[in-house]
């Protein structure tokens, strides 16, 4: 299972990566694998204020719909518009072109408290 060490994770299978002042958010390889073919992604509007743990995006496959939770609090500054036409990017490149949205964090400590790659691997092991 691909779990890059260059970013943080949540128990609900989001990843979060520092990029300058922003936090980029997506879902893990494990999450996309268990969802199956992604058919639609509902991303949050830019400008929306979100709380850590709040459901802010929805990923749909044919038979399921899963909420994506904000890993950190802050303001959504950008969403991945490419997913509107190519939701399959979430399957093909979950850690790259399949990113979901970017947050301007309001509390840097929240990011630091997220899971590291090793701890996240343990979460996956528990679930599978």
């Amino acid at each position: 299972m691909n779990v890059p060490a260059d970013r943080k994770y949540t128990r609900s299978h989001e990843w979060a990566k520092q990029e300058g002042d922003l936090i980029v958010v997506g879902i893990s390889d494990f999450a996309q694998e268990s969802l199956g073919d992604v058919v639609f992604v509902e991303v949050p509007e830019a400008g929306r204020e979100v709380e850590a743990g709040e459901a802010v995006a929805v990923i749909e496959s044919v038979k399921t719909a899963s909420d994506v939770y904000a890993p950190v609090s802050g303001k959504v500054v950008e969403a991945n518009e490419a997913l509107a036409d190519e939701p399959e990017l979430v399957n093909g490149d979950p850690y790259g072109a399949g990113w979901l949205f970017k947050i301007e964090p309001s509390d840097p400590a929240e990011f630091e408290a997220l899971l590291g790659a090793e701890d996240y691997l343990k979460v996956i092991e528990e679930e599978s």
Partner: peptide, 12 residues
């Protein structure tokens, strides 16, 4: 687009 519907999305 069944993911909009009650049998999948339940309360949402």
């Amino acid at each position: 687009l069944a993911a909009r519907e009650q049998h999948i999305r339940r309360a949402k």
